[in-house]
């Protein structure tokens, strides 16, 4: 009987020890949101004007924009936010809402920026009005291989 009590006491002591030594302070650090990387050559895969699809009725294949770390070059063969080469930046590199173009010798133009993944492929979606403010265009860009 005494040995049984001793065994129970030892078990309690071991359990208490485990509980005490299993606790330690966890230093949790939130994952660092990566800076959005858009470097590369992008082409237009989808375009709408005021919600109407233009992709099948207008040739967008000649348009390319090449982003480097801070500059861009453009083949301006379609209406776009800008028409000359220059520099680009995000309003916030980690959580961008706007893509800001600065043409050489020109002021900056900010356009709403989305960066979704569709069918496993990263897209850039830009919304802008190159002509009348009442005409809203949405271009979906994908990297050109």
């Amino acid at each position: 009987m005494n040995s049984m009590r001793r065994l129970i006491k030892i078990n309690y002591a071991l359990l208490l020890g485990c509980m005490l030594f299993s606790c330690r302070t966890e230093h949790l650090t939130p994952p660092n949101e990566p800076v959005k990387n858009i470097t590369g050559t992008w082409g237009i895969i989808d375009a709408t004007r005021n919600g109407t699809d233009l992709t099948s009725s207008f040739d967008f294949s000649g348009f390319h924009i090449v982003f480097t770390d801070s500059t861009y070059t453009i083949d301006s063969l379609v209406p776009f936010i800008i028409s000359h080469n220059g520099k680009w930046a995000f309003d916030n590199p980690q959580y961008p809402f706007d893509l800001i173009f600065t043409q050489t010798d020109s002021s900056s133009i900010a356009t709403p920026f989305q960066f979704p993944v569709a069918n496993g492929v990263r897209n850039i979606i830009l919304t802008f009005s190159p002509g009348c403010p009442s005409n809203s265009y949405v271009y979906t860009l994908q990297k050109v291989n």
């Binding site: 005021n50 109407t52 379609v78 009348c132 005409n135």
Partner: peptide, 13 residues
């Protein structure tokens, strides 16, 4: 032609 209002920098149909 649509859209009803446009500049020469719009795409018109």
């Amino acid at each position: 032609i649509t859209p009803g209002f446009a500049t020469d920098n719009d795409i018109i149909t």
